[in-house]
Design a protein around this nucleic acid. Structure first.
Lengths: 131, 131, 131, 131
DNA sequence: GTGGTCTAGACCACC
DNA sequence: GTGGTCTAGACCACA
């Protein structure tokens, strides 16, 4: 899996990195149980600071995407990710709200917006059953 | 229009404020040409520093939501907001991408996601004719 | 002579007004000795504050473009404007310097820049002999 | 590169500062990719407040002259500055218009004006090839 | 160490 | 009265 970091982007590097791991899992590129490079190896690979990778890994672990074993190293959570709970959904709503508000201001129709979302879903094979 | 700021929230205050103004415009609470309180008045109203309000106003002006009029003070852009262009849509996509990736990981179905979006659209009367 | 003020423009109103009077003189629309509306009349005409017109008139007088007689009212300086002196030229240079620097950064060639200037000169019949 | 600020000048400090950075780029003193001192260092260097430097940096970034890099700090845009577009040229014209009008009033001939411009261009090696 | 954010208090130009 | 500018000092997120 290729990781692409934009050092000038507005999102902090650790966030970009985290998002790409999550996208990899969603896409199925990273399968449950698959192992990821160590903090050191990953940092060297993509040319960023150790601490930055570590921060991202810690958050991914905290949010249930990965496990960090002292011995086996870093692996994608073999049990799959915790499914959406109330908190998560409410957060997601709060995040979407301003995006939709601005879209409405800019005359983006509901249909247009929904079709953009659908388009983005195409990237992810949502066969969730086998996870 | 009531403005609610969460001083503990993770979003910076000026962003929360900006988003509420944008939501107000999208909702139709703030109509094109309508005037907004001065920097000082607004700051006093919601109990934050005037520089924070000013920063938000400057960005809203820059993004075409409001005008800062030499006489009339601050007014909602009477011509409405610039409709979505390529750049905006591409940005929006980039913003939605990680949200959707995480949702997929958390077994949120496409239908569920789209229905959440639809629900959020209900707040905004997108019939632009009556604005 | 029509005066056009842009209340949202970045230049202060009195500056816009001043510039249009000066342009009128340069163009020959306002001839030496010709009289201008009083502060009150002018302010009413273009719908701005008395003080604003007054401030512009005072500066125009100060810079030698107009005379303000207690009786005859406001007239374009019948002797023409003081020709450029050292101070004026040095100021002009300081003003042009940053404009040219930015133009160079933006790959505007010297020829292109000069031709823009020439184009702007077309508006003004530079028969300066009869003034 | 030396920066000279006139605290008594009529232009705001951040504008003077911005203009000198732009002039530095135009002159070739600041080459694409070259890094600039941090906000704090620059502010200390020239003896002004860091917020003032920051404001200038933000505007320079916004206008495409510099990038604010998460790791390398502040650098001159390695791709060079966006070349002039319609908007920029139209703005430039609007800026030059009153300058030329006043020059005409003050009996500055077109030749004289153009030769002043040419003189100012001498400072900038517009052969973009060697930058 | 960096930039980003927030607060506070001051002066000035403009209207 | 307004917004624009400048200064100052503080805290936090990021790398």
């Amino acid at each position: 899996m290729y990781i692409r970091i934009d050092l000038e982007g507005k999102d902090p590097i650790y966030t970009q990195f985290k998002n790409q791991i999550i996208a990899g899992i969603a896409r199925g590129d990273l399968k449950p149980g698959e192992s990821l490079p160590s903090v050191r190896a990953m940092a060297a690979d993509i040319g960023i600071n150790l601490h930055t990778v570590n921060k991202a890994y810690q958050q991914l672990k905290q949010e249930g995407f990965i496990l960090i074993h002292r011995q086996k190293g870093v692996v994608v959570n073999p049990d799959g990710v915790e499914p959406a709970d109330e908190d998560y959904l409410s957060n997601l709503k709060q995040t979407l709200h301003p995006l939709i508000a601005e879209a409405v201001c800019r005359s983006v129709s509901e249909e247009k917006f929904l079709s953009m979302c659908k388009e983005l879903f195409v990237e992810f094979p949502d066969g969730k059953d086998d996870r």
